[in-house]
């Protein structure tokens, strides 16, 4: 568990360093995630169990980790409050559109591949 956390933090540090030193508009943890993914692809069995234990715990409890930021929705600046209708409608319709188009795209491509 602790070894796994250390590995994750080291990769986050590496990602942060690359993000700071370059002009890439991607944040440290995401670069860290890409680096860890590459490392796992190259050395699939190195420390895998300890990383896996720690990662599974963190991912299972992701909702808990974003509660501090999530609670902020109840304390928004008044400037956002009068935009609620726009936020709400675009969020819900946008999500429905995205689901329909994503599922249809994948269905069409998969069916075409089977026809050939």
């Amino acid at each position: 568990m602790l070894k796994g956390l250390l590995v994750l933090l080291i990769f986050q540090c590496l990602g942060e360093a690359i993000s700071q030193l370059s002009d890439i508009p991607i944040s440290g943890p995401i670069i860290g995630m890409l680096l860890l993914f590459l490392a796992l692809q190259i050395y699939p069995h190195q420390h895998l169990t300890s990383i896996e234990t720690c990662s599974t715990n963190l991912i299972t409890h992701l909702p808990l980790l974003f509660l501090p930021a999530g609670v902020g929705i109840f304390f928004l600046d008044p400037e956002y409050l009068n935009q609620w209708p726009a936020i709400f409608v675009s969020m819900i319709l946008g999500t429905i559109l995205a689901i329909v188009i994503t599922a249809m795209t994948m269905k069409l491509i998969t069916e075409n591949r089977h026809d050939k």
Binding site: L8, L65, F66, L67, P68, A69
Partner: peptide, 27 residues
């Protein structure tokens, strides 16, 4: 709210390593 956020920063901080951890299901 600002006080609450800084008091519970420990939880928010763990989002960083949790992002890196998403490499695992991907792998």
């Amino acid at each position: 709210y600002e006080h609450y956020f800084s008091a519970t920063y420990l939880l928010h901080f763990l989002l960083g390593p949790a992002t890196v951890a998403l490499a695992l299901p991907l792998h």
